[in-house]
Amino acid sequence: MVHNLIKNQASARDFSLSSAAEGIAPPEHFLGFGLGLRTDHFQDVLSTNPDIDWFEVVSENFMVDGGKPKHYLHAIRELYPMVMHGVSLSIGSTDPLNMQYLRQLKVLVNELQPQWISDHLCWTGVNQTNSHDLLPLPYNEEALNHVCDRVDQVQNFLGRPILLENLSSYITYKESDMSEWEFFNQVARQSGCNILLDINNIYVSARNHEFDAQDYLEGIDKDKVKQFHLAGHTDYGNYVIDTHDHPVADPVWALYQQALKRFGWVSTMIERDDNIPPLAELLAEVETARNIAYDTLGRLQPLKQGEIVT
């Protein structure tokens, strides 16, 4: 459990298995069921204080000096645990690490005291040109060593392990000589980083590259996975695009259940980035995730702060 260093910030909930249930108790770092915090919902979150375990925020959205978004962010942080999710680390780029970005990230980490920090196993730009997209790496030895070296630098700079997330991808380079999951798992093992497994991205990439999603799950070490993302996509028949603008699709819920069976209790959240519906709709999706997990692993009892199970 990460303890609060700053007054007036919410700490993570504790969970216990309800006495009737059989199953394995969640690990200490388990945060429960959360949601990606979006600007459209700031007011609603503060006025309705929804019963949700935690929020994820996109780090770059708050790398500003001040103003309304930051004001809301801190007000919401007082009520909920948070994790930070970035899109600009560009861990796989052959450009030098962007130290200005890392310094901004560290400042925000100090402000928010998140439970953890994540970014993507990708590169976003090279030679001073930014694609603002999550571009896939070739999966080979050179890229593996390059990424592990940089993860090490980032973790040393931040003073803590990071989580890396798998992408949705549409191309495979001829330079690749191992599967994405072999590469991903090796990065986690060799660099000491943890894994944010995006269940939707596994589904999307499995469809686009015609592999078995179950092979992906089985290729990832159980103890490395600290967070799940669930999101929607757009299905074009012959291929699928990771649009994050729809509700979670049924095959992704099914894959989520398979992932729970393999990895056990993993902090799970709904990630919607576009076509943002009212807060209640997303909270209902969070409840769906919670119910699937309870059905699969046993019912949990969220405890109030300081409550002890007898």
Binding site: I171, T172, Y173, K174, E175, S176, N208, H209, E210, N238, Y239
Partner: peptide, 8 residues
């Protein structure tokens, strides 16, 4: 540099 595979 892109592999030709699958339906697209």
């Amino acid at each position: 540099q892109i592999k030709d595979h699958g339906r697209i």
